[in-house]
Design a protein around this nucleic acid. Structure first.
Lengths: 141, 141
DNA sequence: ATCTTCTTTAGAATTGTTCTAAACTGTTGA
DNA sequence: TCAACAGTTTAGAACAATTCTAAAGAAGAT
């Protein structure tokens, strides 16, 4: 496995990990590969664990959670809150928004440059805006 | 308890329940009172259960959950997803958005008429937009 | 090699929420 | 008024997702 990583090489991944002062361990590399090697994705911890396991790679669920959080802290992953029951991690950390298909629980990207939010009031005194999240909830017509 | 319900009388609440074909039971009236008698609020199931209990009124946690969901289905309450760890219920069901204070977990309303989202792409074929949620994440400056 | 520090992991623990089945209450109609 | 049914409540078990624990296992520096 791990060949055909079109845009992201194993070296790239190592670099990214080191940049975040995370040792490039077997587990982290495997997970990074699954996450970043082939375009952007929205995935849950359980699902990623499933993929790794199915790929015949032993990674514990705890490690998947650890890794996802470390990647998030490092800014190479982002958490998306749309539904109380599951937490999605998004490999696209650029400004963009989402459609959320309520029937299936699927997320679809909305490019950041197509959407604009205007008329935001000032945030309360002593706070600053970290991010503006837009979730467009859709369902079968 | 239950006096001083400035804007919402017990009768009002009964009406609202009946309108949703929910029997006006003691428990539902108590919870409705806590939720609606004094302006809008954002609250979690656990917190509401705590309030009821502290007020000396016996309501089980299961009933609180049941009631919150029934009220949501009836359209007199709305669920807000901002954080994977807790589910907030909002007594304001009109179009509006939220600031989410990440440090404290508190929600602050943004009036619906101040904010506007433009540039939304068409939703995928066969789906329709249910709602557009905007969450402005803020934290201590 | 050795040591130190960082990682991983199995499994237990926690948290928030839902389910279950039995007891209870509101409503309706005789 | 009261029986009878359908709708409600509840304690506690069950669940799902996530976090914690502490012990064993790798990485990196010397």
């Amino acid at each position: 496995m791990v060949e055909k990583a079109a845009y992201v090489t194993a070296d790239d991944l190592c670099q990214r990990l080191r940049a975040a002062s995370l040792r490039p361990t077997r587990q982290r590399l495997v997970l990074a590969e699954l996450l970043f090697a082939r375009g952007h994705r929205h995935i849950t911890a359980e699902a990623l664990h499933g993929e790794a396991t199915r790929a015949g790679i032993g990674v514990s669920l705890a490690t998947v959670y650890n890794t996802l959080h470390q990647f998030t802290a490092a800014g190479i992953l982002r958490q998306v809150a749309v539904d109380a029951t599951r937490t999605y991690f998004d490999t696209n950390v650029d400004a963009h928004q989402h459609f959320y298909v309520e029937d299936t629980g699927m997320l679809i990207d909305i490019p950041g440059d197509s959407i604009a939010v205007s008329g935001l009031p000032h945030p309360p005194r002593g706070t600053r805006i970290d991010r503006v999240d837009v979730v467009v909830r859709i369902s079968k017509a």
